[in-house]
């Protein structure tokens, strides 16, 4: 219990700092004192609109999306017995993207676009599950292979859709594919899903520690492995589906956040799961602040920023881990 306190405290502080940065910076920079006055209710003018109505919903969305992806990534890594798995590896984002692009092609926007993306993610999840289950045996490698193949199938469909789409819609489609937080307005679903996801996965954390030691070992210690794997699959898929629905497919957060934590604090999932949620949320919040401000007034898709920052950081960590 004591071991969890310090890492989670540091990550919590990181989340607070990222939130402050996200609320302060934008087309107009707001000093931190003013941000504090807005939050504490003492400031009602233009900064109030700016901070609370424009930046705050977007910041909440960025944080919850990052947290959902990182939590889903951490769960998926145990499920697939592979510390380098990410939430998209089983084709969930591909299914969501195909459905979302179809919706965009038909001129559907707003909430219906989100609904289409969510439905696409669920369909992909059911396809992979059904195919991997086929013969009864349900090994991690079979699930992974099925997911990777289905994902590459979605990739081909995405390529096809982009080719036949009229130029006018192409830009919106590309933004969706790269991941973008600018269009999201609702944050209720994301927050509720995150709370539910943590509430359901935290009591399983010690089971995950045991399962990480091998499936037979886990079963011999009384862990209901078959049920746990099914639960992990459904939970991680739903978390990913909600994240993709909110912000498109944002790369690297779901892989880098849990993996960096594995290197830094170890593989105890009682620390790792809440830690990954805090860290992933903070990372995406910071990346989105950069995406809004780096080339202002031009906005970058946040997925571009996470990949540009994530690739070198990850390569560095990998080379360091090799040498250890």
């Amino acid at each position: 219990m004591k071991r969890a306190f310090i890492p989670l405290l540091i990550l919590g502080a990181l989340a607070v700092v990222s939130a402050w940065l996200a609320l302060s910076f934008g087309s107009v920079n707001t000093p931190w004192q003013t941000v504090w006055q807005v939050i504490s209710g003492n400031e009602r003018g233009l900064p109030f609109d700016l901070v609370l109505q424009l930046r705050l919903p977007r910041a909440i969305n960025a944080f919850t999306t990052g947290a959902l992806l990182a939590l889903a990534g951490a769960l998926m890594q145990v499920l697939l017995r592979n510390p380098l798995a990410d939430p998209y590896v089983l084709g969930i984002s591909g299914g969501a993207a195909v459905a979302a692009l179809c919706a965009l092609l038909l001129g559907i926007g707003g909430l219906w676009l989100n609904a289409a993306a969510f439905a696409g993610a669920l369909i992909s999840m059911l396809i992979v599950f059904g195919l991997a289950r086929g013969a009864g045996a349900w090994s991690a490698s079979r699930l992974l292979l099925t997911g990777v193949i289905v994902a590459s199938g979605w990739g081909a469909v995405i390529g096809f859709l982009l080719t036949v789409s009229p130029d006018a819609q192409l830009r919106g489609m590309l933004f969706w594919l790269m991941g973008d937080l600018g269009s999201a307005t609702q944050y209720g679903v994301g927050v509720v899903t995150l709370v539910l996801g943590l509430g359901l996965s935290l009591p399983l954390a010690r089971n995950l520690n045991v399962m990480a030691r091998g499936e037979l070992t886990a079963r011999a210690l009384g862990v209901p492995v078959a049920r746990l794997r099914l639960g992990l699959y459904v939970l991680a898929s739903l978390l990913t589906a909600v994240a993709v629905m909110t912000a498109g497919s944002i790369g690297f957060i779901g892989l880098v956040a849990p993996h960096v934590l594995r290197l830094a604090v170890g593989n105890d999932h009682r620390i790792l799961l809440p830690g990954a949620a805090l860290f992933g949320g903070s990372l995406l919040l910071l990346a989105d602040t950069v995406a809004r401000t780096a080339l202002a007034p031009q906005q970058l898709p946040v997925g571009v920023v996470t990949a540009l920052l994530g690739v070198p950081v990850f390569l560095y960590l990998l080379s360091r881990a090799e040498r250890r």
Binding site: Q77, V78, R81, N82, P83, R206, N209, V210, A212, R213, G214, L216, T217, A220, L221, G222, V223, R262, G266, N267, D268
Partner: peptide
């Protein structure tokens, strides 16, 4: 068992503590 899995390395003490899981 005959072999153990090291996809997610933990410390020796943590591994021994796994036995307390049940």
């Amino acid at each position: 068992f005959q072999d153990s899995d090291d996809a997610f390395p933990v410390s020796v003490l943590e591994t021994a503590l796994i036995g307390r899981h049940p």
